[in-house]
Design a protein around this nucleic acid. Structure first.
Length: 199
DNA sequence: ATTGGGATTAGCT
DNA sequence: GCTAATCCCAATG
């Protein structure tokens, strides 16, 4: 993980999530630019950390820079980057990537899909990267790497999808205009590059 | 011991 | 649009 990556993840999830847009996630074989994220904090009733630490969510309470991979609907794996201070339980869900390299490998893992759907949606991101539950609790730099810079383009913020509580919280972030996002965001606000510059 | 409900997706209507 | 797939945990008896 790069220095700027570590710096961003040490922020809270709410501040890290928009700043991760534009950065690059890679394994040895494949890589993609982050175009959609979602912040989960311990005060969020939709967060796995909301009801405290369990065996299943322990990775979410590790130090910033670890990854938390969880099962969704008993079927899919979803990748989170742990943020903030250790023991708090904050993380950013990686919801979509713009494929950069290793596209054939990702397509094979996904059973074929058009380019702009290859890493669209959290289950598809984890599948394309080859991640599963056994990777949960590992550190960035072991299996996957975070590099690159925060985007210089606008990031929009909107409501969430796929949950039943706190749906209206503006915690889903996406690169404005990207066609690689899981589902279009009805923007409640737009953050410019100036808003996202290191404070 | 059993049951209900997800941070989702693909495939069919 | 609707639904099945399928695992883990929390709530309940």
């Amino acid at each position: 993980m790069t220095h700027s990556g570590a710096q961003i993840l040490s922020l809270g999830a709410l501040e890290a999530a928009p700043r991760l847009i534009g950065m690059v996630l890679s394994t040895g074989e494949v890589s993609g630019r982050i175009v959609e994220t979602e912040a989960y904090t311990e005060d969020d009733p939709a967060s796995h950390s909301y009801r405290g630490r369990r065996n299943s969510n322990a990775a979410m309470f590790l130090e910033a820079g670890h990854i938390y991979v969880h099962r969704s609907y008993g079927v899919h794996w979803c990748l989170n980057l742990v943020t903030g201070a250790a023991g708090i339980g904050e993380a950013v869900l990686i919801r979509a990537l713009e494929p950069l390299t290793g596209i054939e490998i990702m397509a094979r893992r996904r059973g074929g899909a058009r380019l702009d759907r290859l890493c669209a949606g959290p289950g598809n991101v984890a599948a394309a990267l080859g991640l599963e539950g056994s990777h949960s609790g590992s550190m960035l730099g072991e299996h996957i790497f975070l590099s690159g810079e925060t985007t210089e383009r606008d990031v929009c913020v909107g409501t969430r999808v796929g949950i039943s509580v706190a749906v209206d919280w503006p915690r889903r972030f996406a690169l404005s205009g990207s066609r690689h996002v899981s589902r279009p965001i009805r923007a409640m606000a737009t953050l410019t590059a100036a808003d996202l510059r290191p404070k």
